[in-house]
Design a binder for these strands. Sequence first.
RNA 1: GGUCCCGUGGUCAAGUGGUUAAGACACCGCCCUUUCACGGCGGUAUCAUGGGUUCGAAUCCCGUCGGGAUCACCA
Length: 553
Amino acid sequence: MDYKKLAELLYPNAKDVSFWEEKYPQRNLSSGAEVVRIAPSPTGYLHIGNFFGAMVDYEIAKTTGGVFYFRLEDTDKKREVDGADFVALNVLKEFGISPDEGLMPNGTEKGNYGPYRQSERLEIYKSYAKKLVLEGKAFPCFCQKAADVGEVFQRREKELQTEASISEKDPCRNLTFEEIEAKLKENKKFALRLKSNGKEGDKVVAFDLCRGEMELPANCKDIVLVKDNGIPPYAFAHVIDDHLMKTTTVVRGSDWLSTWPQHLEIYEALGLKVINYIHTPLISKLGENGNKRKISKRYDPEADMRFYVEMGIPKVAVCEYVLNLANSNFELWRAANPELDFREFKFSPNKIGLSSPLFDMNKLLDISKNYISKLSATEVYSNVLSWAKEFDKDFAKLLEERKDFAISVFNIDREGKNPRKDLEMFSQAKKVFSYMFLDFLGQMKIEDYEIDSKDFAKAKRVVSEYKNVLDEKDDKETWFSKIKTLAQKLGFATDNKEFKKNPENFEGNVANFCEFIRVAITGRKNSPDLFTIISILGQEKTVKRLEKLENLL
RNA sequence: GGUCCCGUGGUCAAGUGGUUAAGACACCGCCCUUUCACGGCGGUAUCAUGGGUUCGAAUCCCGUCGGGAUCACCA
């Protein structure tokens, strides 16, 4: 076979690879600086696994003084979602992570290694494809069966039944020049396949920055390098792009581990030095059957990063949670440095765990509520407002109309040394403070109050008596002593030790007494300091609320 | 099924031959607070399993089991 003739036949106009090698020179970076990238496909959302990788990328670039760039892997037209080009980028931006180079959210490209969309790099891939044909390392394949996804799945099903894996040497690798020429004359489309050197049982040694040296089965499949539409699949495209863009380390999920040998053989065929790889653990969830599985957009809302935006979980909390998943010593660092920005944390790629963590909403919300508890009332206000502007317009309007009132509500029990931790996410503000924002009197029915029916009579007495002694002008001390006096009058214990000794002698203790008042005013057993609530509401509204419950009972 | 990866409490995990096996979340209890919280203190609970090697193993080796990932002209 005359490979030169074949290469010219297949790719008559392709540039020589030297053109690209010269066009994209080495980067001028200080030693040790890493070049990393996030390279998602335009599927319309950003998966938490991608985000995990982006955090790692971001940290690596930051700690080494390197470059973090964004490349769009839009080589699969079938899966592509219209207008999704910038979704991942914008979501990333929402979380405060902006790449230094590549595609930018405003649609422009920044950097000298573009284009940063794979669909615009076809000419480049063609050059490398031609090089491989020229060297006899790749061949055209005219089989249509592999292009049919349905058939592929069927074939795979069959393969799963067999005892061992099938090493796939493609029949087209033996086509003669004349046969190829004839098929091309018939206008038949071809895919380019790698002429694999692998034999069943061969091993390759690869080095993963986190996992160390790994022995993997060598690739022996004649994998597709360029699809019959002229677009290369991930395997071929990423090797070339990462080479040309001077990537030093690829960070990707460990679901890529088993196809890694294919990529390694592509490097070898292309005569390129293999760059560093890190295969990160896969964030998982417990499935219906109680088993772990990779978190997925289809079943798990948490897989999509927009979920956190929609829930109003502070982006810092999400970043810190994910960062902690990647480097679990982060949490110790955080405890020792409560005031520092998480960006100051020194990230260590080699401390990334190897086993797949289960996604833990509890933990995330714990980080979140601690974070929110440290914000000022004004900060909470602006966060809640910007959340509401996007997801609850009516509430946003209310917040804007009653700004000062809202801030005073958010400020309850916030300014002390140990603020309350009621809010886990900004979306909860409306519900948590519903008794301050909503038309409380109009809305409440007896079943909305957190009160046992067996306590109705007792509650009625407390509420109806209390409304007579309430005075908004009282200071906190007076306010409380009135409560005590009234409680005692109605048979409640004012000495808690006494009460604990002989509970049957009392209607309850002061806590129980207060609970009825609290429920009347807020509907709930759990609410911030009553005194403050009453002073914000004022005499008139408070009394109306007490009367409302009294009448319902 | 083949292959690879992983296996310390319910969850995230520290740990690299000698530790009472850290810490965090969750759960439970107590204390503080004569309201709600916040906070403080404490508790339950873990080295998947069987063999080695060793004076000594969560840690090293082998087997077993369990879980995961992957096996496309998808990424």
